[in-house]
Structures are given as structure tokens and as C-alpha cells.
Design a protein around this nucleic acid. Structure first.
Length: 286
DNA sequence: AGCCAGGGTCTGC
DNA sequence: GCAGACCATGGC
């Protein structure tokens, strides 16, 4: 059983436009695991959290911090009016379909360093394997919390390592990228907290000084780690979707929420790839 | 068995 | 500026 019966939880009643499962399995995070009872367990910062949704109520167990409620609300972006945003995006038929498929996706606000490091690992990789590498990274170099749960290793910790130290993780050519990012963060060449206040162009530029961070990883970091909702990361799936479904580009009214729109679209085309089977753009994959 | 994956860098035009 | 080779590894 994932949750002790006597453990006190934090409950958000009457959440709207939110689905825990959709949010945690749509490909924006890599450390939440489903339990047999329908709940999910993951680590936020230094705390092991188990979350469960019953209708419009979401309960979180395991949070010990004083400001846990606030922290959880921020992490899951529970205050934002997604209904209003979905209404705007739904003016477009494609986004309306994507939203209908998974209307409960929220953009998480994850730890910046964890997000940067995780999306470096994500490059030219598949989600299953990304999760395995990150598990091994945390188990090898993250602070132990309890049971099988570990913190994400700090940049300072990783900055001391060599590619040989990372070899058992099987992260391949990405090892040197992880180390460059860790060293830049540890020695102050890259100050992640600055990126909250920077313009998008400056923030991107700073991230892309890291060996191994290009446009896409920078945008994923800013979207999922800094809540920069106007970022529109383009991986292979989104590029395919844009080519097939938005040959003229995105509608203007989407741009302020392009990141949210992107996540609905990403999940939709990955789960329903047949929507990309357009006679004008025959997909390469059979 | 062979193509693909939430890409980026480097080289050569 | 752009195309193509190359990078590690394993999921499917």
C-alpha cells in the first residue's frame, strides 16, 4: 500500500481542468511512478510525495514542509485558470481535438536544475530510457530519503564527477553534457535563478552556452522548470505535427500559451499518431 | 534486424 | 546559413 492509513494528507477540493494521471504521464516529467491503487509517487525536492485524485479532489501525502500546500499548488500549477486558456486555444480545430483527448494536463513547475539536467539526458532518447537513466543517476549520486527514494543530485555533487563515474548510468554521449552543465551551475557561470527575470531570448542564450544544450533543451527547461508558458519546444513529434497540421504556422492567439498548447499537442500525436497520417505528408514511419 | 528516440555538435559547402 | 555525419544505448 502506497499510503499509510493514518497519514495526514493535504487536499485540494474542487480542482478544475486538472487530471493527475494526464499531467504526470504526458512526457514532461520523468520521476513519477504509478502505484497499483491508482496513485502516483514521486519526489519533489527532498520530499517523497504520493498523490491521488478522486473526482475533483486531489490529495497529497508525505509532504512535511511548513509551506507544503503552497509548494504543491505551485508545482502542479493549481491556481491558473486553464479553462480560460483552453477556451482560447480551442478556437483552433487541431488544438480543440488535442484538448479533448487530454483536457486535464497542467504544465508542472519543476526544479530548475533537475529540469535542465533531465532534458539534457532526453536528447535523441526515448522516454522509457530517459526515466531509467535518471533513476540510476538519483540512486547513484542523490541524497537518500527513504526506501527506494532519492533526491535528484545537486549540480555541486555532479560537478566533481568524470565521464567514467557516469558510465554505469549508460547515458552515452550525454555524460559530458551533464558534467558541463553541472560545473557551470556549481561555479556560478550559469545562475539558474536569473532566468526567471530574463527575457526569453537572454534566458535561452544563457542556457545554450552549456555544451549540449541547444534550442529544444533550452525551451523544455524554461517551460517545465521556469513556467515560461510562451516557450514552444519542438522535438521530432512536434515538428511532425506542425508540418502536417500547421503548415502556415501557429495562430497568433496561441502564442502567449504556446507551451501549454504544445503539451496538449505532443501528448495527443504521440498517443494517436494516426492523426498525422495526412496524404499530403506521408509519415516516414511506415 | 534495423529503425527510432522530447537533439546537439562539428565539419564542409 | 544549411546539410550530413556522428554520437551511445536500448525500446520496440
Amino acid at each position: 500500500m502506497a499510503v499509510g492509513l493514518k497519514e495526514k494528507g493535504i487536499t485540494f477540493y474542487d480542482v478544475k481542468d486538472f487530471n493527475l494521471e494526464q499531467t504526470l504521464t504526458c512526457g514532461q516529467c520523468f520521476r513519477w511512478k504509478p502505484n497499483a491503487d491508482g496513485s502516483f509517487t514521486g519526489v519533489i525536492g527532498t520530499e517523497v510525495i504520493t498523490a491521488v485524485q478522486i473526482g475533483n479532489a486531489v490529495m497529497f501525502y508525505g509532504a512535511k514542509a511548513e509551506n507544503a500546500r503552497e509548494m504543491l499548488s505551485e508545482y502542479f500549477d493549481l491556481e491558473r485558470d486553464y479553462g480560460a486558456i483552453k477556451k482560447i486555444l480551442s478556437q483552433n480545430d487541431v488544438f480543440r481535438e488535442a484538448i479533448t483527448y487530454a483536457p486535464g494536463i497542467h504544465i508542472l513547475k519543476q526544479d530548475p536544475w533537475e529540469t535542465v539536467c533531465s532534458f539534457i539526458i532526453s536528447q535523441n532518447n526515448n522516454i522509457k530510457r530517459i526515466m531509467g537513466i535518471i533513476d540510476r543517476l538519483c540512486e547513484s549520486y542523490g541524497q537518500h530519503i527513504e526506501g527506494e527514494h532519492y533526491c535528484f543530485p545537486t549540480a555541486q555533487t555532479l560537478s566533481w564527477l568524470t565521464v567514467e563515474n557516469l558510465q554505469p548510468l549508460k547515458c552515452g554521449f550525454r555524460a559530458k553534457y551533464i558534467l558541463d552543465a553541472a560545473r557551470r551551475v556549481a561555479n556560478g557561470q550559469l545562475i539558474l535563478n536569473e532566468l526567471y527575470d530574463d527575457t526569453l531570448d537572454i534566458a535561452r542564450e544563457k542556457l545554450m552556452k552549456v555544451y549540449g544544450i541547444g534550442n529544444k533543451v533550452a525551451d523544455c527547461s524554461l517551460l517545465f522548470g521556469f513556467n515560461r508558458l510562451e516557450c514552444f519546444p519542438q522535438d521530432v513529434w512536434i515538428k511532425r505535427a506542425v508540418a502536417a497540421l500547421f503548415p502556415q504556422g501557429l495562430p497568433e492567439y496561441v502564442l502567449p500559451y504556446a507551451g501549454i498548447a504544445q503539451q496538449y499537442l505532443f501528448h495527443y500525436v504521440r498517443m494517436q499518431p494516426q492523426v498525422l497520417e495526412d496524404s499530403a505528408n506521408p509519415p516516414k514511419t511506415k
